[in-house]
Computed example of a mutant assay.
Amino acid sequence: MVGAADRAKRVARTSVWLSGTARRVRAPRRGAAGAVGLDRERITVAAVRLLDAEGPAGFSMRRLAAELNVTAMSVYWYVDTKDELLELALDAVFGELELPDAGSEEGWRDQLRELATGYRGLLVRHPWVPGLIGNLLNIGPSAMAFSACVRQVIRKTGMPPDGRTGAMSAVLQFVYGAHVGGAETRERDFEFALELLIAGIETKVPPA
């Protein structure tokens, strides 16, 4: 029977954010052909671009190396596995989100609309993201900053503590399920449904 310690070790080995790999800087080997100017940021940007163009099915380390005009081994000097690179790419796109200042005087309704709309825009621009969220640990710094901001905005609603997790899940799961498409009618439907969701949250907030 697998114990908790063994499970924790297995998770740490399979996530760039828990294994320490994300903080490790590995220099290219001396004399490596084609590796000049290569770094983790450039690799991650290229990975996002390739995923946008071809999706996870068309993504491979060899294909990425060809895009960068380097050898596949050069890429492995900066990441240990393909999954590590996918985790880095996933967090990189979460870094595109402009988060509201949850500590400001701005109303929670506008901030919640901003977060939901921004998250949906991310999923529309990068349709490969939902599949990775379901298969990889999405615990990079940008993703965690987004989650923390949503949590802070939900707290501003005045929702009792025992209802905040449910409210947060309702918002994120709603957006996650509504990410496909972008036509005017679908946009209108999304905005209407979001207003219904906000109105529903308001009904659960105790009177001041």
Results as ranks from 00 to 15, higher is better:
A46L: 08
V48Q: 10
D52C: 10
P28A: 14
R49V: 11
T44V: 15
R42W: 09
D52L: 04
V36W: 04
R40V: 09
A46H: 07
R42N: 11
R42I: 13
P28W: 02
R26G: 06
A32W: 00
A27K: 12
D39I: 03
R23G: 15
P28L: 12
A32V: 03
L50T: 03
A35V: 08
V36P: 00
L50S: 00
D39S: 09
R49C: 10
R30G: 04
G34R: 02
A22S: 14
P28D: 13
A33M: 04
R49P: 02
G31T: 03
A46M: 08
E41G: 11
I43G: 05
V45K: 14
I43H: 01
A46F: 05
A46R: 06
R49E: 15
A32K: 00
G31L: 00
P28C: 09
G37W: 07
T44K: 02
G34V: 03
A33C: 04
R30V: 13
R30A: 14
L38R: 04
R24H: 12
R40N: 05
V48E: 08
R29C: 02
R49Y: 02
A35S: 07
A22E: 14
V25P: 00
T44W: 02
R24L: 15
R30M: 06
R24I: 12
G37H: 09
A22Q: 10
G37P: 11
I43F: 04
G31V: 03
I43K: 02
R29P: 02
T44S: 13
A27G: 00
A46E: 15
R24W: 09
V25A: 07
R42Q: 14
R24V: 12
L51Y: 03
A33R: 12
A22M: 08
R42V: 14
V48A: 13
A47W: 00
L50K: 03
E41W: 06
R26Y: 01
G37Y: 08
L50Y: 03
L51N: 03
V36D: 14
A47D: 07
V25L: 10
G37L: 08
T44I: 13
T44P: 04
A27P: 07
T44L: 13
I43A: 05
E41Q: 14
A22G: 07
V48L: 11
L38N: 02
A32Y: 00
R42M: 12
V36I: 09
R49F: 01
A32G: 01
R40M: 06
E41P: 01
V25G: 01
A35M: 01
V45D: 15
A32R: 00
A22V: 11
T44F: 03
A32F: 00
D52F: 05
A22K: 00
R49N: 11
A33F: 03
R24E: 10
A27R: 14
R30C: 04
R42Y: 10
R29I: 04
L50V: 10
V36H: 11
A22N: 10
T44H: 03
V25M: 04
R29V: 09
R23D: 15
R24T: 13
R26L: 07
V36L: 11
A35E: 02
D39C: 10
R40H: 05
D52G: 06
A27D: 06
R40C: 04
R42T: 14
R29W: 05
A27W: 08
D39F: 07
V25Q: 08
R49L: 08
V36N: 09
A27L: 13
